[in-house]
Simulated scan of single mutants.
Amino acid sequence: MAINQREIAKILNVSQYTVSVAFGSEGRISEEVRRKVIEAAKKYDYRPNRLASGLRGTTTRTIGIIWNFVDLWAGDTPIAMDMLDRLQGHDYTVYQFQLHPDVEVICRNIDEMLSRNVDAIVMRAIPSQLMNPRLIRLVESAPAVVAVCREDVELFPGDIVVHDRDQAIRQVAGHFAVTGRKRPAMILDMSEESNPSKFKAFQEECLRLGIENHPKMILDMDRPATPEQIGARHTEAIRRHFPGKMDVDAIFSFNDIGAFHVMRELQDRGVRIPEDVAVSGFNDNVLGKLWRPPLATGDRKHHEVAQHVEDLLMKRIRAPGGSPERRVVHMEFIRRESAC
């Protein structure tokens, strides 16, 4: 019984892309690897898809996206929707893969897209994923790749849109300082890989502006496993850290949903916002303007990120090659009454 490309790749412990190249697709593999693929193909009666082979060297009008389409923290989903709208506006069919924390799963997703001969790939990733050797090799073989990451990764061979959050975090700390706050706090799950650097930016800016460290500057919380747990985890953290009187005068949550629950818990205790405790969230949830008081927040600049991704993709598809580009989008603090 004949087998398919995925199965022959699994037998040989190589990527589907390698199998594709062995049968004539553009790309580079060693002659030894090519020979092993051909021999295995004969043994297992594998026959390459000649229709797909005929597409090589031409565009397929397809783009693959690896992204947080279902995002617990409601930060990446609006960017994904904007990108989809833009790319489909160029008459591209889009393959969607939900971002997985395991880089090996991401590599399999990229391999799958390469086997489908996509014209380009877009991916959300963290720095450690973009430095993975296998991922780098796959990206080098792709026609065009644009990654969105919180910081630049010099080794990454594709284009990167740096989605910088530190500026906005420093702006929150600065706003707390100019409004006279002396004991601000940030509520975070410190076990999550990216969160210690968020707190570091907040803490360093506070210190630079003359706000001293104090024991409650970081309010560690448990990681929510489902969207329904986001608010509960914030509420639990407030109750655990402050079983009695509140001894901070500002709280910064890197998520608006969490900030809503913090505000509700404080108001249930009779704490006045912002007179007693200022509160800021992040992500600019549409409900923030309607909250009482309206929630200060952070603007992730969704449209700017999507615009840069679109520009880079269209440029690479029209004119492949050239040095990788780096573009930067800075998130910004939005001042509202909850933090005045």
Score class of each variant (00 low, 15 high):
Ile3Trp: 06
Ala9Leu: 10
Ser15Leu: 04
Gln16Gly: 14
Ser20Lys: 15
Phe23Ser: 05
Ser25Glu: 05
Glu26Phe: 11
Glu26Arg: 09
Glu31Gln: 05
Arg35Phe: 04
Ile38Gly: 03
Glu39His: 12
Leu51Tyr: 15
Thr62Asp: 03
Ile63Gln: 01
Phe69Lys: 06
Phe69Gly: 03
Ala74Tyr: 04
Asp76Arg: 02
Met83Leu: 15
Asp85Ser: 15
Arg86His: 08
Phe97Tyr: 14
Pro101Tyr: 00
Glu112Gly: 14
Arg116Lys: 12
Met123His: 07
Asn132Asp: 14
Cys149Gln: 00
Val162Gly: 00
Gln167Tyr: 10
Ile169Met: 15
Arg170Cys: 12
Val172Phe: 08
Gly174Cys: 13
Pro184Leu: 10
Ser194Val: 14
Glu204Ser: 10
Glu204Gln: 11
Arg208Asn: 15
Ile211Ala: 11
Ile211His: 09
His214Trp: 09
His214Glu: 12
Lys216Arg: 13
Met217Leu: 13
Leu219Phe: 11
Gly231Asp: 10
Glu236Gln: 06
Arg240Ala: 01
Asp247Tyr: 08
Val248Met: 13
Val248Gly: 05
Ser253Ile: 04
Phe254Ala: 03
Ala259Val: 00
Asp268Pro: 07
Arg269Trp: 01
Val271Trp: 00
Val279Ile: 13
Val279Gln: 04
Asp284Arg: 01
Leu287Asn: 03
Gly288Cys: 13
Arg292Trp: 09
Ala296Glu: 01
Thr297Asn: 01
Ala306Trp: 01
Gln307Pro: 02
Asp311Cys: 10
Leu313Tyr: 01
Pro320Ala: 09
Pro320Gly: 08
Glu325Met: 10
Val328Asn: 00
Ser338Pro: 02
Ser338Ala: 06
